[in-house]
Simulated assay, not measured.
Amino acid sequence: MHRFSSILFILVVTLLAACSPTKQARSVDTSGFLGPIYPLMHKGEDGEALLLYKNPKVATIPRGTYKKMLLDHVQVWGPPTTDPDRQARAQKIADLLYTLAYDSMSQDYEMASEPGPGVLHAQVAITRADPAYVVLRAVSTIPAPMNAFAVASMLKNIGTGKPLFVGDASLELKLSDSQTGEVLAASADRRVGNKRLDADSFDSWDDVHKALAYWVEKARYRLCQERHAQNCVPPKG
């Protein structure tokens, strides 16, 4: 019996380690970053951002029009705080997202430093970034008899789509023609951590970092599809 329990435990841990590190949340709070675009947005379908806007004119733009990209530094939008550590952490996350996005987009676009013809203007804001509580997440991840943390986390996940003690991140994006300023597309999305046990899960900010990486991969994939390019690579997870 003890041997069977040990094998079962190993199987459960293996499955937890193999699952996607983050998942899309069920809802996202808007921050004000996208301003007048919000009334034009609609709920995304499966595989899309939670809120979306796509200018109907995009369908008439000739393929290959935008060969360059002007990427603004990522902004931080959210509830005001007087905590300098929290502000510094939010800025660090924004800077990380900018670096990831710049490195990714530069593989497909010539990166511009100013507006011009054929230049796509990308503006991004981090609107939420909360760390995981790694000890409590680990405790609540192990299924065991009378594990109140595991039961509570499971019920929270069923009710809200977010387990207890995981990380949480939200982002808003706007793509415009750099010359005219006309908004071509916009989105708002939110991702939360999954229950998992691996080396990275003991970093309290890993869920947020994994969400940033996913969004960058997803943005590159979507833009690749819009260009009707070959070999577009979908994001993992």
Rank of each mutant, 00 (worst) to 15 (best):
Q179R: 09
M1H: 07
G64L: 09
D85C: 01
K174R: 15
G44C: 02
D72P: 02
E182I: 07
T81W: 12
P84T: 03
V183W: 04
S31K: 09
L136P: 00
K54T: 08
F9G: 11
S6P: 00
R220Y: 05
F4Y: 14
A88P: 12
G32I: 14
Q107C: 03
D130Q: 14
S6T: 12
Q87K: 15
A25W: 14
A152H: 10
L173K: 01
D130T: 13
Q179A: 02
M146Y: 15
A18K: 00
F33P: 02
K162V: 10
K57W: 05
R26S: 14
P163G: 01
K67C: 05
S113W: 09
H73K: 15
L34P: 08
F202E: 04
V208L: 09
I142V: 15
S178L: 05
T81G: 04
G159E: 09
L155P: 02
I126F: 03
S113Q: 13
V139A: 15
L8Q: 11
A188C: 01
M1C: 08
T141I: 11
R89E: 11
A229L: 11
V124K: 02
R191E: 01
E114S: 14
R190C: 02
Q225F: 00
S178D: 07
A18F: 00
A25G: 14
V28K: 03
G237Y: 12
P117C: 03
L16C: 12
T160R: 08
G35P: 01
T30R: 10
G161D: 03
C232A: 10
G193W: 02
M1D: 06
A144Y: 13
A90K: 11
A129I: 01
L223S: 07
L15D: 00
R222N: 09
S204V: 07
Q87F: 06
K162L: 04
H209L: 08
M1I: 04
C232P: 11
V74S: 07
K23V: 10
K236Q: 13
V208H: 07
L120N: 07
E114R: 13
S204T: 08
K67A: 05
G44N: 06
F33Q: 02
V216F: 10
P115N: 12
L15Q: 04
Y66C: 07
C19R: 12
R137S: 03
P131Y: 11
Y98F: 15
L184E: 08
K92H: 13
I93S: 09
R227N: 14
L197C: 02
L212Q: 10
P79V: 12
T180K: 10
A144E: 10
P84A: 04
